[in-house]
Amino acid sequence: MTGFALGAEQEEWCGHLRALAADRLRPLADKGEPGRVNRPLLAALGELGLLERVFTSGALELCLLRESLAYGCTEAETALALQGLGAHPVLSAGTPEQRARWLPQVRAGRAVAAFALSEPGAGSDAAALALPAVRDAGSASTGGGQGGGRSASGVGGWRLSGEKCWISNAPEADFYTVFARTGEGPAAKGVTAFLVPADRPGLSGEPLDMLSPHPIGRLTFDGVPVGPQDLLGEPGRGFRVAMDTLNLFRPSVGAFAVGMARAALDATLAYTAARPAFGGVLGDLQAVGHRVAEMATRTEAARLLVYAAAGAYDAGSPDVPRRSAMAKLLATETAQYVVDHAVQLHGAVALQRGHLLEHLYREVRAPRIYEGASEVQRTIIAKELYR
């Protein structure tokens, strides 16, 4: 990318992805049940090699991938992104055994991953999470089944007791990246990351009926045993694992939002150019034309900021937290603006169940909250500016 303009190969790849999303993935998404993991869709993402790209791409390529899929099939985009979010800590901080056990299955779309950070009392303030990991000096048996666990007796493990809430892919995931408080220090310094298979004794969950069509649930930990072999990184260093993951994925959340905004904008251009009104078409009205111009300008500005943040991440820039926060903030707020005005310009037709804009209107709200609400992004930006 030069001067924030995509090269010919990148443009061709994005076009190919948009076509795949519409022709191959949308039919599978339509057959899925809202609020449930769509395993056939995940398998298709694996067969097409798109899940592999999540783990081998830089931040910019990840953004192009997410934006292009979101344009044609938001369900496919979300399924892909959640695999990356849940499994990236395994890639970045896992042991060779953990990577060998889980990552091939995730890349193939056969194992469902989840990122379990939020709690009933600790959503936006991730450093305030309270799920305790209490030292278990006795046996910390990790169970069998999918966990492939072994006894940590004599080594010393932990037991997890408490709740995680608003966890995407819960309770249907096959494993969870869980962040718990082991107490090596105050606030963020006492957080540890664990890989917890779904069949671990004491772990249960229930789905939550949410506005977003992808699965979200609550997890309950009733003395769930974890041992040293379940650690992702070092004890007390889990917050860094979480932030490294979020810094990578925040610009691509912005890319997801840009994809939705571009889909809404294109639908609006087509509709207002053809819809008869007052002796011409809607697009002839200055009020409509100016509104569409504003939608297009904001979408382009958000797209460029997302690309800039991704480029900074790939270049190892020290200001990644600020750039990532700016990209997520502007893109998600812009997408909300664009989709809302697209609905307004379409009128009642856009409110019909099954209409593209009705779907986008439901989808576009959640990204302003998850992976750090807009208010949190502003706080991050301000702290970085005054640092």
Rank of each mutant, 00 (worst) to 15 (best):
A308R: 07
M260F: 10
P321C: 09
Y307I: 10
G280F: 12
K164E: 05
G154P: 04
W13A: 04
F249E: 04
A293L: 14
R298L: 14
A267K: 11
G145V: 06
Q336I: 08
E119N: 01
D266K: 13
P104D: 13
T142G: 15
P96D: 15
L305G: 08
P89E: 02
T332M: 07
A22P: 02
R181K: 13
V349P: 04
A140K: 02
R150H: 12
T334M: 07
L208G: 00
H355R: 12
V258G: 09
R99D: 13
D230S: 15
L85M: 14
G236R: 03
A113C: 10
E358P: 06
K164D: 09
V90N: 00
A93N: 08
A114F: 04
D319C: 09
G35D: 03
K164M: 08
A111K: 03
A263T: 08
G148V: 08
A116I: 02
R365K: 13
D30A: 11
R353E: 15
G156V: 06
V320M: 13
E77N: 05
A111Q: 06
R322E: 10
K31M: 11
L6A: 01
P104Y: 11
A87D: 02
G162A: 14
G156H: 04
A308Y: 06
V338W: 03
A100K: 15
F278I: 09
A308H: 12
F194T: 02
A170I: 03
T56P: 07
A114Y: 02
A301I: 13
P367G: 07
L208Y: 01
A43G: 08
V288A: 10
Y271N: 10
A293T: 12
A309G: 04
R101Q: 15
S212T: 13
L48T: 00
T95C: 14
A308T: 10
A81C: 13
G205A: 05
M326L: 15
M326P: 03
T334I: 08
L351K: 11
G372H: 02
V281D: 13
M326G: 11
A264D: 11
D266P: 09
G86V: 02
V339N: 00
S139W: 07
T177I: 10
L248I: 12
G185N: 12
A296Y: 12
P321T: 06
L282C: 12
A261Y: 07
A8L: 05
L356P: 02
G94K: 03
L357A: 07
V37L: 01
G123K: 04
L91N: 10
R365A: 11
F179T: 01
T299H: 11
V376E: 15
G354Q: 09
L208M: 10
M260L: 14
V191T: 09
A193P: 03
Q352S: 15
L85T: 06
F221M: 02
M295G: 03
R135P: 07
P228G: 14
L269M: 14
Y361L: 11
V54W: 00
A263H: 12
T177K: 04
E75M: 10
R39F: 05
P104I: 11
L117M: 13
L62K: 00
R99F: 11
S68C: 07
Y337V: 04
L60P: 01
A257Y: 08
